[in-house]
Amino acid sequence: MIARLTRSFLKVPWSAQLGFVIIALNVIAFVFAPVLAPYPETQIIGRGWEPGFWAMDCSDEAVSQRGPCWSEFNTGRVEGKAWLGTDHLGRDLLTRLLYGARNTISIALLITGLSFFIGMTFGFLAATMRGWVDQLISRIVDIMMAYPTLIFALIILSVAGTSTLVLVLVIAILDSTRVFRLSRAVAMDIVVTEYVESARLRGEGLLWLMRREILPNTLPPLIAEFGLRFCFVFLFLSALSFLGLGLQPPMADWGSMVKENSGVITFGVYNALIPAFAIAFITIGVNLVVDWFLRKAAGLRDEY
């Protein structure tokens, strides 16, 4: 099993391998955050904005006094230093980053899942029923898409407040318009095939048609789209958090971490860039895998 997985992993181009490794790292951070984190989530371990490993003193003198220069950075001991420095309140940045992975990734996944549920249901519905149902949903989506997403979200958040539930619903609904477009377009091709026709003539219900005939045949493009939408949602959520309107403290979250620590960038303290790079890292990883998947799916279609 493991051998087979390794072999198929080695066959993948290097860019996709890189993507898989990045995703795996994030999954590990997600699952094992409490184990990996050197300190508890909200513990204050030092002064604000202490530098991390880049400020290690590796001169001969320091090494002879204290041993190898990395021993300055130990894990688990409060008197030690923090590998990635501390945040504005003096909490360990690495710990916050690991817990932040949990919050940000799980909420982004939840939003993407919800958005796909809404978008696919309506998309398949529009494709199967055609007629006025299709017209009505499509026009509503046209109007929603004619409006900039970020501004839309900001206006709704200003009225409804910035609770996590509102945030999830708003982004999911706004994002489901794109899923709707794609799933409707893909399903349109499937609806006219003979096997859907024969299922219809057999007297199968609408739900059965959508779930058993259309869904399995539209999966590959939708899976790739899931990756892209996840990236988009992740960036969108981070942007909102960065603006102070996304996930609210004390929840650790990458976008808010950038915001909290960004004030001192002009003074040469770059701790805020670490969570920002973490955001870029995961979106690049997912993008690389999606890229490979799309190319593979296209290639398969050529062969047949």
């Binding site: 960065f242 960038i265 993008n287 890229d291």
Partner: peptide, 18 residues
């Protein structure tokens, strides 16, 4: 371009600022 698309805008902004 793939990298810039994956970067959040504020990261690009802060890198330039740095």
């Amino acid at each position: 371009t793939l990298t810039t698309i994956s970067f959040p805008e504020f990261l690009v902004a802060y890198i330039l600022m740095v």
